[in-house]
Amino acid sequence: MIQLENLTHTYSSEQGKNVAVDNISLEIHKGEHLAILGQNGCGKSTLAKHLNALLLPTAGRVIVEGMDTKDESKLWQIRQTVGMVFQNPDNQLVATTVEEDCAFGVENLGLEPKLIRQRVDEALATVGMSEFKEKAPHLLSGGQKQRVAIAGIIAMRPQYIVFDEPTAMLDPHGRSEVIQTMQKLNKEENITIINITHFMEEAVLADRVVVMDKGKIAFMGTPKEVFRQVERLKALHLDVPVVTELAQAIGAETGIDGDILTIEELVVSLCR
């Protein structure tokens, strides 16, 4: 479990103080798939960086599996427990070949070369990138690069992976590659997923959706509970999934309810 207790983060600069995360309390449970929504600059990335001690709270606490992120002696253990995948696929790959890059994090753990080899091969197989292991990262597509980044994280055997807009710079094909990988990790490897996204279609896949606004949690709930509140979302400049919007628009005439999140659900209720 990751516990955020009254987490506050204030950036100080010459221009003054900027409260990016404002007194947030939240529990992230093991095995869940959590999505975080919110408009630009509402503090999502700042929050994310607290989950593996890239940033430390200016007030409040973050407890990862019982370890306080402020405890320096636990730093490397925390970073191994919570992995992070970032937005720009180019800027998180370090080495000149896929397998060397995938090994980077495990090498930092100081494992035996034999064990590193085993973990790298496993991780690349999990994300379906084994056949590219000798390739240079710059020759891969965006989705492939992102999968290599994911492999580099899972080779470290984390319990949580934070994705900070991992699909924002990808084309639709790359996006679905990454989402499928994410789902697979959650369902098959039982890794807790925290996905920060601007795509409502991705949020629909989560167990729980947190909507942030100006550094605070505006509201949260299951995808159905959240996307039912169209007015509130629109007020925060957020969309609802296209399918949901369609269902609500034709709801009055067809008599179907507004609780529809996927095309399948829409088809089923229209045929009823």
Partner: peptide
């Protein structure tokens, strides 16, 4: 890149092994 390296537990050459 610096952030990503830190997130992956990079802390210099000390105690690091190689593939």
């Amino acid at each position: 890149l610096a952030t990503a390296m830190e997130a992956r537990g990079y802390h210099g050459g000390e105690g690091r092994t190689r593939l």
